[in-house]
Design a protein around this nucleic acid. Structure first.
Lengths: 101, 101
DNA sequence: ATAATTAAGTTTATTTTATAAACAAGTTTA
DNA sequence: TAAACTTGTTTATAAAATAAACTTAATTAT
């Protein structure tokens, strides 16, 4: 009946990040920070988890002497995201079978 | 940008339970058990949380000498479930603004 | 009739997760 | 040169999910 929900995606902040990344070429740490409203620490942790899972790639460089971290969703990331969205449909479906009682 | 996701609903098992209940008049503990595939302990805990939040009503009685627990979603439960589903749309939206890079 | 098994849950304990607080390393400004 | 800011990471704490163990009573087998 219910498909499993990827626990790595079924988390508010990580899902926000993936949702943001799926629509863009890449995004900076500070951009994700602003869009999500998360704390830097939390965002850092969740980005690491997504990277470790191979859902995103993280590039670290410098810009104007400051560290610059950019994230980009991977093909696998797109795939699992789409799968998650599809699995979730089962859970949100409003038209259900009739009463049990 | 992103609306908050009710943490009580943003949980695989509790969401399954709510999803099942939203479509029926009421459902028995054992029915929820079968449909969700959860353990009895876990289901018991999550049902209690949903009850404490006022999202469902729980009725305890007996049938054939055995305990019978039935759950029914409350108006508030329907409301928060619908709100959750709506909030989630932000996260699943595939058509996003163009690149940041 | 009593021991083992099943039914239907609950409670407790453990593992995982999420989050915030503290830290780091360097840069800019007063 | 000291204070404040930028951009993160690491660590510690709080919260949550889950499973294992327990409970109470009923049924079945011996």
């Amino acid at each position: 009946m219910f498909k499993e929900l990827d626990p790595l995606l079924h988390s508010q902040l990580r899902l926000q990040v993936m949702s943001l990344l799926v629509g863009v070429e890449s995004a900076e740490f500070t951009y994700l920070l602003e869009e999500t409203g998360a704390t830097r620490g939390n965002l850092s942790v969740q980005i690491t988890k997504l990277k470790d899972a191979g859902y995103i790639n993280v590039n670290k460089s410098f810009r104007n002497n400051y560290p610059l971290t950019t994230c980009k969703i991977t093909p696998k990331g797109v795939e699992v995201f789409e799968k998650y969205v599809e699995a979730l449909q089962d859970y949100l479906n409003m038209d259900k079978k009739s009463s049990t009682q």
